[in-house]
């Protein structure tokens, strides 16, 4: 069961990656990367159960946090350049 979940997560990662590569434009990429980040959180959680070491969930918390901060940073710092250019 867990193996199937892991496979699904990897497939989802690949699909999100395709969207991140295709774009078009900044927002589609951020969206795809944000989704990829959530999938890595799940990946860490599920791999803990798959290989019998669920102690490492701390890393999942950290991934969720940095993923959010990265999205915020992209939004604010890209905003800035546009308002400066205008």
């Amino acid at each position: 069961m867990i193996v199937a979940v892991m496979a699904a997560i990897l497939v989802t990662m690949l699909l999100a990656l395709a969207r991140a590569f295709l774009g078009p434009g900044r927002y589609n990429r951020i969206l795809a990367i944000n989704m990829f980040g959530t999938k890595t959180v799940l990946f860490v959680a599920v791999s803990g159960y798959l290989f019998g070491r669920p102690e490492f969930l701390d890393i999942g918390i950290l991934y969720a946090l940095v993923n959010f901060v990265a999205v915020i940073a992209v939004l604010r710092l890209t905003h800035e350049t546009e308002s400066d250019a205008a």
Binding site: L57, I61, A64, V71
Partner: peptide, 23 residues
């Protein structure tokens, strides 16, 4: 492990919609 899973769940539930709303 259960507490950590709940924290991750809470975190995703709060940050995910916020991020997409912002986007």
């Amino acid at each position: 492990a259960g507490v950590r899973l709940l924290i991750i769940l809470l975190f995703l539930v709060v940050t995910g919609p916020t991020a997409t709303h912002l986007l």
